[in-house]
Design a protein around this nucleic acid. Structure first.
Lengths: 242, 242
DNA sequence: TCCGGTTTTCAAGGATCTCTAACGCTGTCA
DNA sequence: TGACAGCGTTAGAGATCCTTGAAAACCGGA
């Protein structure tokens, strides 16, 4: 298993800061790329597989905060904000937007490195959405789900056709086994929608999925319902991320 | 939808700090419990369902760092460290141990709240490392409870169906055997609710559970009632934590 | 032992949540 | 255009849980 070292993108308009930091990170076993503006950062993000972004909030041109917001909303790359401001309100804004962490300048490189490692440790436990390093095949209770072919095989290797909704629901469960997932979470993970007032669509998809993968859909063993909570996949998943 | 608000444990030896902070958190829609030492914190962690710990590093007696290390290693509860020290090296140690975040005193409550929310958001979506202490299967008096499958087996290996409430109640008992648990604690551990004035729901759940696992529900041996105190599981539990 | 106040038990009823069949809308394909 | 699959919505039945209330059990003191 080749495990390339995490790739950090350092975004700061001060050349000495970003280059010193990048050198320090490389010296400590990480890969680093630098960008001097939000625009350059966007290019770098397209061009390389970045695992984490260290981002200066105060930059000329497009604001660091707006890039941060974009990263948090669209992508799934963790962000550590960097700023010269000691003002509390602005510090809070960054976290409220959804940045994963926050460091004020002047910063101690060793602390920043520790924070980078902490964030990477957290986020690498499970591949984030759209993670390119996704497993091809996930196995559970005799079943196998080929993610790239979107095919579900039973114990005998026979294909069981799944609709795309059922496939996405099953994926959501397989990526988070043995975890109680609320309807809202499942709705978000499968369709990205926000729930309407009386939303029973997830119940229905679960019901449909159970009909296909449960031995006895009336007495489900794989997908259990948690009264007042949501649903949970009880099976062990092989080939899942680690 | 009853979505119990996250329960925060504030550990600090300064009474004014922990109580002010706890009040602030409650005022902002969280639940809070306080502990004045690492030892008290351990008790609180057993007695209540804690979602996150805010922990002062510098405390007399057992060090905050050692409790933090314990939490990170064994449990799966996120930790935010609190400290008066501005010294960089000590700040780094906390993160390297695996704390989820770090705030220096004197802190802005609003920032701490934002960090708490940020950590909770992360940990609720991304499953944490599987709790190594969390046993798959708990055995007691011939019974076996498979926690991840949410299934109870009798001595002959036959599945005895449990409702979600019964399962959660049994879990609460099995993780704290031979300990008197008050109704309030049990309510918190099972549903996260805060009790209403005349709350007899736990009595009912106990009654239902007894009907399923006691030989003679009228003369319970496994779940004894402690008059004026609560309930207690009398059995030895194999495979339970420590 | 008996008595009064307190706590616990548990059945009954109502409230809430879940399941799933049925229906209709939308997009696809021949 | 018509047949069809997929999916959200609706609604009624069923499951689960909380609240209520009356009776039983318990405790301490007389």
């Amino acid at each position: 298993m080749n495990d390339p070292s995490p790739h950090i993108l350092v975004v700061d308009d001060h050349r000495d800061i970003r280059e010193t930091l990048a050198r320090y990170l490389v010296k400590n076993g990480l890969r680093a790329t630098t960008a001097e503006s939000a625009a350059h950062a966007r290019k770098a993000l397209k061009a390389a597989s970045i695992d984490l972004v260290v981002l200066d909030i105060m930059m000329p041109g497009e604001d660091g905060l707006s890039l941060c917001r974009h990263l948090v909303e669209t992508g799934s790359i963790p962000v550590i904000l960097l700023t010269a401001m000691a003002d509390d309100t602005d510090r809070v804004i960054g976290l409220e937007i959804g940045a994963d962490d926050y460091v004020t300048k002047p910063f101690n490189p060793r602390e920043l490195l520790a924070r980078i490692r902490a964030v990477l440790r957290r986020t690498s436990i499970v591949p984030r959405e759209r993670d390119p390093i996704e497993q091809e095949e996930l196995g559970f209770e005799g079943w196998r789900l080929n993610v790239s072919k979107r095919e579900l095989l039973d114990a005998d290797g026979v294909v069981v056709p799944l609709s795309s909704g059922e496939f996405q629901l099953l994926c959501a469960f397989l990526k988070r086994p043995k975890m109680v997932l609320t309807r809202d979470q499942l709705l978000d993970l499968t369709t990205g929608r926000t729930p309407t007032v009386f939303d029973r669509s997830i119940d229905n998809q679960v019901s449909r999925l159970r009909r296909k993968i449960e031995v006895d859909p009336k007495d489900p063993k794989l997908i259990k319902t948690v009264w007042g909570g949501g649903y949970m996949l009880t099976a062990d998943v092989k080939g899942s991320a680690e």
